[in-house]
Every structure is written in structure tokens, then in C-alpha cells.
Design a protein around this nucleic acid. Sequence first.
DNA 1: ACAATTTTTTGATCTTTATCAAAAAAGCCT
DNA 2: AGGCTTTTTTGATAAAGATCAAAAAATTGT
Lengths: 236, 236
Amino acid sequence: MDFSELKSVCCGCTIRELCLPAGLTDQEVLLLDQHMSHRQPVKKGESLYRTGDAFKSLYAVSTGFFKTSILHEDGRTQVTGFQMAGEILGLDAISADRHVCDAVALEDSVVCEVPFDRFEELGQLMTNLQRRFNRTLSREIVRDQGVMLLLGSMRSEERLAAFLVNLAKRFSARKQSSSELVLRMTREDIGSYLGLKLETVSRLLSRFHDEGLLAVRGRNIQILNADGLNRLVGVA
Amino acid sequence: MDFSELKSVCCGCTIRELCLPAGLTDQEVLLLDQHMSHRQPVKKGESLYRTGDAFKSLYAVSTGFFKTSILHEDGRTQVTGFQMAGEILGLDAISADRHVCDAVALEDSVVCEVPFDRFEELGQLMTNLQRRFNRTLSREIVRDQGVMLLLGSMRSEERLAAFLVNLAKRFSARKQSSSELVLRMTREDIGSYLGLKLETVSRLLSRFHDEGLLAVRGRNIQILNADGLNRLVGVA
DNA sequence: ACAATTTTTTGATCTTTATCAAAAAAGCCT
DNA sequence: AGGCTTTTTTGATAAAGATCAAAAAATTGT
């Protein structure tokens, strides 16, 4: 079986690009694909899973855009991340066999469902897969610690610049324009993620616009001065 | 071989209590112990590893207390966590085969070194161990997201209360007093972890003292009103 | 396409936390 | 033990970001 065929099957069209199996042999990808992945659409605004749901599967974002957020008892919520094609949802649920955050689609999306018990079995058979997965988990830890740095030590303008630079980098890694960003989330979502109020986010975007760093038209944002943004983040 | 013997060997004295192998059979613990763990003292103020160091091993804290921190290009640092007996150091390094934070002993400590390549091999042989480890990694993700909530949505007094409540809980899980805390870190370390300045931490401790929540004598802190603290955190 | 809702922008003001400064306390070294 | 360094406390002031408010713009449902 060659890969022109695989491309048309279930998740075959995307699974090769996903973080999860990157670095596997063709045979391994095939196995993963045949045995486990199940394509599933999620409409804009729908939850893929909610806090407290039993943990059955990981989800690889095939196309679309998600946000994850955790809830505090008193009703406050904190957006913990935004996920795009190729990124994995549900890693935090392995810990206690329950989801501990909500995952909501910010646009019509498609995910690859990967039943975790079967995935674990396969990991026992395929050393390569297991090693990849350890790294995937560890990479998420590193990402989270980066957010801790952002929230704990950066000023508001630095946080927003870091956010935009990060988004641009991820779009660019997916062969999309890294200067023309179409934000899928509200100012409030951005604010929650960055530990700021939506008004502050709005004001900062206006300021960046006035300073010639960005062209802001609602959720369409064009990066006009990437160096300037990077300088704000402190990566001089 | 019975376990009275095991207790005297290398890491045997502590490894059974560690998060890493919890839930393993005696035989499995024995294997882990014999093949992999290597006890190593770390003096107060010394680094167990530094950012950029090649990743060889994970470390389980046997006794003592550590802090981990990441560095920003411009010299700022962010304390990302404090680790005590039974907790694992180095999980973030799996991602890129390099340590991405510094781990410093805050008191004379002993760690169990676990060479990661051997650990991975063993994980392939012992399904149980591998599953445990996946959970350990996931639990760290959940912990980090809790810190994101703290930094992104809580006010200074809530952050400090959450910090103290968390410390108390962890001490208590180790059969130490949960009301008499001896802090191993400076006010500056606490501030960095909580995204506050050391003066703010000091002022808050004084205020909690005045309000009868705590008795503060330098780094000796007694929790006088645990309910009050919990109420501040929002766990009413 | 239009009314209703949600999101975004902007202004005025207030609150929280940071900054600067200096003294007091604690810890460390020999 | 005593001098030296580091840490902690506390006060006065400043700055960053939050809050409140209202209009403008964008999105959604029918």
C-alpha cells in the first residue's frame, strides 16, 4: 500500500504531519492510522470535551482552531492555550482519567480521535512511538512554563507582543502567512490567556497600530514590524 | 530478598515512596532500584543542573528542597516551582534533550538519579511503569496550568494564600506538620513564583499576621486559620 | 437584509502593585 | 562571638493596569 492511498483514508490526510507520530516509519504511521484514528468534526462554539468528562481519547487537531480553559470554583476562568492543526488536545487528562479543562472550537474544526488505551498498547509495541509521546508531553510542560514566565515576569505590552510573535511563528510553521493573522479568539480570550482585561488588550492593539507595529482591523491583524515586536519580547 | 534489605540499598530507602514507581509491584521496584537509581547529595545553594546542560537523567528528590527557574534573555528569571521529597526534577528536559531550567537546592538535599535512556528501556518492558510515567508527566502539566490560573486570574493575596495552602498540603502528605511551615525560599523566590515583588510578599505576610491568619516569624510560619486562607483562595 | 446580540474601542477615574529608600533582623563566616 | 552580607520589613510615592461607562463596529439568527 502506498501513501497516495493512505492520504484518502480516515486521518491519513493529516496524521503524517501531526506532532504525535512525527519521526515514525511509514509502516508505523499506517498502523496508527488503521487501528486508531477516527475523524470527527466539531462545529464552531461546540465543546470537544468539558471539565469532569471521563478521559477516553486524545485528539489531534486536523483543521481548525481551539481554546482550552480551566474553571475556578468561584466562576473565574483562565484560558490555558490555543490549539491549531497538528497540536494535541487532552494531555492533561491522562493524569487523573478525567478532563480538567474545557476544549472549545473557535471555528468549524476537524479532530482525529485517538483512543488512549489503544494508543498506550501500541506504545508498548513501538518504542519509537512511546519515545515521541514522552517528548510531546514534555514539550507541553515546557510550553506551560513559558506561559508562566510570560504571566509572572512580563509587562502587558511584552505579553501581547509575545503572544502575536508566537501565533505568527506557528502559522508560519504551517505554511500560512506569518504576517497576516486572522485571530479566531475574542479580545477577552486573549486577555484571559495573558492575564489582562479585554480593554487592556484592545488599548495595546490600538497602540501597536499607532506605533506602526501592526495594522489592526478587528480580528485581522497584519504584522508590519516583526523586529519591533521581537524587541518588545526581549529577544533582541 | 525482602524489603528490610532493600531499604538499606542505594535509593531503596526512599524509592518506594516516590511518585515515579508508585503502584508497581515489589519485584518491579526492586528492578528499578537495582538497575537505575544512584543516590547523590546536593549541597544547599548548588545547582543540580543548569539551563543548556545535556539531559541524561531524571532526579527524584529523596530529601531536601529545590527550586527550579527559567531565564529570559534579558536577565529576568521566573521561578517555576519548588520540589520536595518524592517529586521529580527534569521532566521538561525530555522535550529537547537539554535542560531548559536551573534546579538549585534550597537546603542540603539528596536526590536519586535515574538515567533516562535506561528508564525508557525499562518502560518498554514494564507496562505499569510506563503508564505511571505518562501520568506523572500529565500531572506536571496539570500543576503548571494551575499556576497559570494563579498568575493569570488571582489577586496578590489570593496567590499567596494559594501558595501557603499548597505548601501545607504537600507537607501534610509527607506526614509533616501542615500548620508549622518552615520556608526554605526567600521572599524574592516566592515573589518570582507568584508574579509579585518581594516587598509585596512581605507586606502580605505582615497583613495575614495582623489579621490572625498566620503567625509569621521570618521563615517560620504557622497557619492559625486554615479556613480563612482557603476562603481567600476561593475554595469556600 | 435587518434587528438583536456580541464584541471592540475609547475615555475618565480608581485600585493594586511596583518602585525607591532606609532601617531592622537574620544568617554566615572565620 | 563579632563583623559582614543578605534578607526582611515598613513607609512614601509612582505607575501600570483595572474598573466603570458609553458609543461604535462586527457578527448572528431569522
